[in-house]
Each structure stands twice: as C-alpha cells, then as structure tokens.
C-alpha cells in the first residue's frame, strides 16, 4: 500500500539517520532517508504530502542551501531543521526560509515527533488547499464574461435588484445568471461564493 504521507530525513550522520527513521517508523510514519542533500535532490518526489527533517551541517550542499533551492523552486513542503551546532544567524536564516522549526541536537524524540506530525498535517492541508484552488480556478475559467461580471457584483454585496439596475437587465435575467453561476462554481450560497472568489483572487467590483 502506498503511504499517504512521507517524512524525508536528510542527514549525513548514519547513526542519527537510522535512529530517526526508527523513531518515526515506530510512530507509524512512512520514512525515506537520504545521506546528502545531493541525494535528496536526485531522488525527491514531493507529490505526496509530508515533511523534511533536514540536518544543517553536511558536506557538499548543506541544509540551508537545500532549503533555499526548494523554496526557489516553489516547493512549500514543511521543513524541520535539526542541527548539532546551531548558531543564531543560521537559525534566523533557516526560519526566514520558512523552516517550521529548528531543533538542537540532541533533542527530545517526542518533541520532534510532535513537530513532524504537525508538519505532516500542515502539508496535507496545504496540498488540499492547493487542490481546491486548482479545482476552483478550473471552474471559474468556464464562466462567461457576463457571469464573471455578475460574480464581482454579488461578491461586492449587491442585491439582485441592484445588479439588474447596474447592468441594465431584468431581475429575471439576473436570477438566471446567478443560478448558472452557483451551479458552475459549486457554491452552496452567497457566502461560499465569496470564499471561492477570494481563493480565486477575484476582487469585488
């Protein structure tokens, strides 16, 4: 069975790598280990939700640089940085690059487990949100110009009557367009339609 989430461990120290794998696997998490950042870049598959547990000090490409590369490439996967020797500047840099947490070795495995779980959850949510956004964008792409115009007015809080007057059309026509709009966007009500428009980045008129 394919796991629904994966925790990636990138650490050049075999002892740390193997022990982390055991901790996470004992907590029923699916784990993949990499001995270097280069290895991770070769093998990574970020289509599945999860997180990365990343060591900072590694020969070759180090943790910070890998984090930078992932962010530049637009990957949003949560990254937990672990380090045996974290100085303040490095900590600040990694947090700025969007690391969800930074743990100093040796750390409490329970604490890591909790952080990993939250990160995995966050990743699942991010991916769900992305999926929904994509679906919504796709649906909104099907709207006619008139329907889009109508949508902006609805989101702006105008009533059917006001919209009819705004667009100089009959109230009945407005009601028709509105029914189409609801059907095409799968919106449940006016509030939901507002949510969808916000996600799609459509501004009220």
């Amino acid at each position: 069975m394919n796991p629904t989430t994966i925790v990636h461990i990138v650490d050049d120290d075999p002892g740390v790598r193997k022990s982390l794998q055991m901790v996470l696997e004992s907590a029923s998490l699916a784990v993949k280990v990499y001995e270097s950042a280069e290895r991770f870049l070769e093998d990574m598959d970020l289509s599945i939700s999860g997180c990365i547990v990343l060591d900072l000090r590694m020969p070759g490409i180090d943790g910070i640089e890998l984090l930078q590369r992932l962010r530049t490439a637009g990957h949003e996967i949560p990254v937990i940085v672990i380090s045996a020797h974290a100085d303040v500047p490095t900590a600040v840099r990694s947090m700025k690059l969007g690391a969800v947490d930074l743990l100093q070795k040796p750390f409490e495995p329970k604490a890591l487990l909790e952080i990993v779980r939250r990160a995995v959850q966050k990743s699942v949510e991010i991916n769900q949100k992305r999926a929904e956004e994509n679906a919504i964008r796709k649906r909104l792409a099907d709207l006619t110009t008139r329907e889009l115009e109508l949508l902006r007015l609805v989101v702006a809080g105008r009533s059917n009557k006001q919209i009819a007057s705004d667009l100089n059309i009959s109230i009945k026509t407005v009601a028709n367009h509105r029914a189409n709009l609801m059907a095409k966007t799968h919106a449940l009500n006016a509030a939901d339609l507002t949510r969808i428009s916000t996600i799609a980045g459509i501004r009220p008129q």
Partner: peptide, 24 residues
C-alpha cells in the same frame, strides 16, 4: 565547538533509540 558537534551526533542517536525502546 566542533568537538561538541561531533559528540552531539551519537548523543542524539542514543536519545532516539532509547525513546523507541521506551515507546515499545
């Protein structure tokens, strides 16, 4: 500081393994 770093590696591995033992 490098020495501390070097020692922290086995120490964190030990902590990890011990926690697995405990949980099991």
């Amino acid at each position: 500081s490098g020495l501390a770093h070097e020692l922290n590696q086995p120490l964190s591995a030990i902590l990890n393994y011990a926690s697995v033992c405990l949980a099991q």
